[in-house]
Design a protein around this nucleic acid. Structure first.
Lengths: 233, 233
DNA sequence: ACAAAAGTGTTTGATCTACACCCATGG
DNA sequence: CCATGGGTGTAGATCAAACACTTTTGT
């Protein structure tokens, strides 16, 4: 049935709509995924992405933001739509269309109390347990999207603390791309983009010599994008 | 409210879900967009994308395929999800979440009877009229996505007839990228990918000399992708 | 014979890759 | 004083961009 007129809408079928969130974090060693245990039947105890139904008075994006806030305590985090999962039988309970979103958060900002409250855990990408419904597919799709996105936009910074070292940034990109990068070439490339501010401070947690801390310079980056620069690492 | 158990679903709110289709075509000169006039009130006569509500017994993707078939007579065309438009007030009639899809079709396959039946018309991208709701935004988002996608995957072939010339292919890419390409470099690049089969036939409609017809070799392309090649034109 | 589009190669500069050593420091 | 990770430069290969003329044929 085509959309023709407002007064016809009433004869159409309404459907449950949910969002599910693929939440990535980075602990300065590995890229990680935040998973939650279902607390109730059915499938109680199974690992799953966090999700919520969309209410009539909430936009899809706000619904995703809200569930993210509820389960991590974080606002204003990187959040982007991934894909809609709309098969009729994807949820054995009832027909539910899920609009998956993925999010990149600074793992240290994440409040531990939420881990307790929601029975959540960070998993390395190569240790992801069995997930309910089509959540495993969502995760795989999100990883592919993250890899591609990271090549063209500096989203990596959303996963790092405000101040970070070049070796940390490199480790992050290595765990996203799943391959090793040459430290000299990586440093050269990232610095040539001129979107980092070097500080005079050093982080000595990783080595005795210590590595200079940098922060992301959003202004410079925005000018770069405005000029049509196709960022690629 | 979190998704916790099947038996809780019933208390959740159901919502109207629609798909809207951004249909691109190419007439060997210009990239075009297929738009439809609403036949009924309200907004009767306004230009709009074609859309349909998702039924309870149809997947989102099948819903999109079906409306595309109904309005173009075409099956098995390139169809990909674009983005969800989920603002609460985006439709003045009632709350509707729309999952926009975009499609690339061979304009010559398109049956003219459908143009009549649906009061449809092809528009050049720089002549798009005012559209209902957030359809203009959908179109803009689709154009951006098409541009990016075309850089990395050979989707252009979906817009061309089975047999096409190199200059035609170049014109297509020029109208997607909105900039001119060097004919020598373009030919060199596209042929170096080795995904085209040259025929012995010529198309003389574009010139007196005539240009050789090629067709897309999907097998070679698939091997290329399997090897992890990052196609880029 | 000429107009109009198809087709062809080379040179130059930019970018990516590979690669090896010294530096600073805490223990 | 030495083990550990941080930091630097260069040469060769590869790729992208710029660029001009010849070919074919319908009119």
């Amino acid at each position: 049935m085509l959309i023709n007129a407002t007064h016809q809408y009433r004869v159409e079928q309404k459907i449950l709509v949910a969002v599910d969130c693929i939440i990535f974090g980075f602990d300065s060693k590995n890229l990680k995924l935040l998973l939650f245990r279902r607390k109730v039947e059915p499938l109680r105890g199974s690992w799953s992405l966090i999700g919520a139904f969309i209410k009539n008075d909430s936009s899809v994006l706000d619904g995703a933001k809200q569930i993210l806030f509820e389960c991590t305590g974080l606002e204003d985090v990187y959040l982007e739509e991934l894909k809609t999962y709309g098969d009729v039988d994807r949820d054995p309970g009832e027909r539910v269309i899920s609009i998956a979103h993925y999010s990149l958060i600074r793992i240290n900002d994440f409040e531990l109390e939420h881990v307790e409250k929601f029975d959540a855990r960070w998993f390395n990408l190569d240790e992801i347990p069995e997930l309910i419904l089509d959540h495993r597919q969502m995760v795989e799709d999100a990883i592919v999207k993250l890899k591609n996105k990271a090549r063209h936009q500096p989203i990596g910074f959303n996963l790092l603390p405000e101040y970070f070292t070049i070796p940390e940034l490199q480790t992050l990109y290595e765990s996203i791309y799943q391959r090793e990068l040459d430290p000299r070439n990586f440093r050269k490339k990232i610095l040539s983009l001129d979107i980092l501010n070097k500080t005079t401070k050093k982080d000595k947690s990783g080595s005795k010599k210590g590595a200079f801390l940098y922060c992301f310079n959003k202004e410079k980056f925005d000018t770069l994008i405005a000029k049509g620069y196709n960022f690629e690492i």
